[in-house]
């Protein structure tokens, strides 16, 4: 069978699809590609079915040697990639042959880049999904000497994304939010100032993004009974730090939640780093649904 031999595994390179559904009630998170926009484009360029397993490379520093022939593409944050020392573009398909070496440097902008092959990687499904879930030890990140299997494919079709469609990876984002959950338990002035502030990213992981507390925004002490968490939910901790919960979020939580960042903005958030900044912007549910539907109907 054809495969890539991993020479450098990088910091966190994981096989991902859209994620795992139907097990949150036993504490198993969705997981899946953090940036579904780049992930979906990668499959689309390769003419793969939606939800085909690809490799999510966080931070870069990745190298493979090919033991087969196929078509591949990279989509995501800005990074230098070399095919046998020849620099190649992201958002474009290339063919790779037996003996070729593919090298990915550290990302320059953004956090994650998706590496896909025609037909996707051949791997095993666990509880209905190919996704690795780090925290839950469901499957694992790539290691040196691992093999990434794929189906041999000699027909090459050059495809690329139009320049104007290539996402940008800025270090400031506006995140659109729908109010919900316990929002009525917060004071009106707390909600107002939450939407007026600029927040800086303190730390992040596949679980979510933690922002530094801004003095004087939240003062009320809200106690709730732990309830289930939705993708994109914004928790406010006791010290006033907002946490946006993403693909590997815990399934239930006891912090009050003000609402949720809409899914398509969660995907963009997944490309920000420590020190980058965001502003939360309130939008109407109707508008949020229309935006989300537009995205999903385009890719599904």
């Amino acid at each position: 069978m054809s495969y890539f031999l991993v020479k450098r595994a990088g910091i966190l390179s994981t096989i991902q699809d859209i994620g795992r559904f139907g097990y949150k009630d036993i504490g198993i998170t969705q997981s899946g590609a953090m940036d579904e926009l780049a992930y979906n484009w990668c499959n689309k360029l390769l003419q793969n079915l939606h939800n085909t397993p690809l490799l999510e490379i966080a931070y870069g520093d990745f190298e493979i040697e090919s033991f087969g022939n196929t078509t591949f593409a990279f989509c995501g944050g800005e990074v230098d990639i070399f095919l046998n020392n020849q620099k190649i573009n992201l958002w474009q398909t290339y063919s790779i042959n037996r003996g070729d070496i593919l090298r990915v440097k550290f990302l320059k902008r953004g956090v994650r880049v998706y590496f896909g092959v025609s037909g996707g990687f051949i791997d095993k499904k666990v509880l209905g999904s190919y996704s690795v879930s780090i925290k839950e030890e469901i499957k694992r990140a790539l290691k040196k000497e691992d093999k990434l299997f794929f189906k041999e494919n000699k027909t090459f079709l050059k495809r690329f994304l139009k320049r104007e469609l290539i996402p940008k990876y800025p270090n400031f984002l506006e995140l659109r939010v729908v109010l919900g959950y316990e929002s009525e338990l917060f004071l009106k002035k707390e909600i107002e100032s939450f939407f007026n502030e600029v927040y800086e990213i303190k730390s992040h992981s596949r679980m979510g993004y933690i922002f530094r507390a801004n003095e004087g925004v939240f003062s009320s002490k809200i106690e709730i009974i732990s309830n289930p968490i939705a993708f994109g939910a914004i928790q406010i901790t006791k010290s006033g730090e907002p946490i946006v919960l993403l693909k590997e979020h815990q399934t239930i939580g006891g912090y009050p939640k003000i609402g949720s960042v809409i899914d398509i903005d969660c995907f963009r958030l997944s490309q920000l780093k420590e020190g980058d900044r965001v502003k939360f912007r309130l939008i109407e549910l109707k508008e949020a649904i229309a935006l989300s539907k537009k995205f999903h109907s385009f890719f599904v």
Binding site: V178, G180, Y181, S260, D263
Partner: peptide, 11 residues
């Protein structure tokens, strides 16, 4: 309650 664009919380 609204939980997100595609989720509802029933309390």
């Amino acid at each position: 309650s609204i939980a997100s664009v595609d989720s509802i919380l029933i309390t």
